[in-house]
Design a protein around this nucleic acid. Structure first.
Lengths: 130, 130
DNA sequence: TAAAATAATAATAACAGTTATCGTTATTGA
DNA sequence: TCAATAACGATAACTGTTATTATTATTTTA
């Protein structure tokens, strides 16, 4: 993996963001400073950085996906009203592997826990989607 | 919601399938018997049935999504090699709500637990993706 | 250090899954 | 039975993402 200015910017943008940005959010954040940046470049680099393990991919139920610079094991809670994504450390799911072995013939390798709810802002302001 | 022959077929196809079919799988399963069936109709009805709560949507990490006629609370384990999706009853995540309250300001409403691994067939045959 | 080799880029086309449009058909309630 | 309208089929459009290709930038090595 060769150095590139674009990759460094893209990586730093994800790292310094606390909003688990999408590819498009990264692109928007950078296009003012680097007007010639291509959206394809953003996707390519986010994927490469993910493959290499420097970023994590968060697939969303609507098909989109977000990127996370946090590497330690954690889950995400998504506000069903405004779409904000927050980090959560969940208690270790100790019984999980035993349950898998009991109920299926699968070999477990990893899991994604995605929580849904409403963030404090949307909750207190009574916002809804409809 | 008005009756339609197409909706009934689509619903029954998901219910009797054990493979958590995609919209396209439902379409393929029915197009021989109903050659004039439109893929748009399949999507429209799967979405309607999901909105009404008669089906559940399983969003996959690759952006695709599958549908499930099982209504009771359960999770899914996905074979990373062949893509097969199996049902799993996971032990109740008792400490989850407390962890959310401790760490975030979100109100929890639901969660999706998606497990990844390898099914017995792929495991014993040594299959890999690459 | 200069030149060759080749990753990475920008621009853009292509692609997959899904949703929207619209004229037609089928269900339903009066 | 017939008017109102939900649902349909066919197809266009849309969204998020990946592939292509000619060009540019980084790295290797002579």
């Amino acid at each position: 993996m060769r150095y590139s200015k674009q990759r460094e910017c893209i990586y730093r943008t994800v790292m310094k963001s606390d909003s688990h940005p999408t590819a498009n959010m990264v692109y928007s954040a950078l296009k003012t400073e680097y007007p010639k940046l291509s959206l394809g470049t953003v996707y390519r680099n986010l994927n490469q950085l993910t493959d290499v393990g420097r970023l994590k991919r968060i697939p969303l139920p609507d098909g989109g996906c977000r990127f996370d610079g946090t590497t330690f094991t954690h889950s995400h809670i998504i506000c069903e009203t405004c779409g904000h994504v927050a980090d959560v450390m969940v208690p270790p799911l100790i019984d999980l592997e035993q349950a898998i072995q009991r109920e299926t013939d699968y070999t477990l390798s990893s899991f994604d826990l995605v929580l849904y709810g409403q963030c404090a802002l949307c909750h207190q302001s009574g916002n809804t989607l409809s």
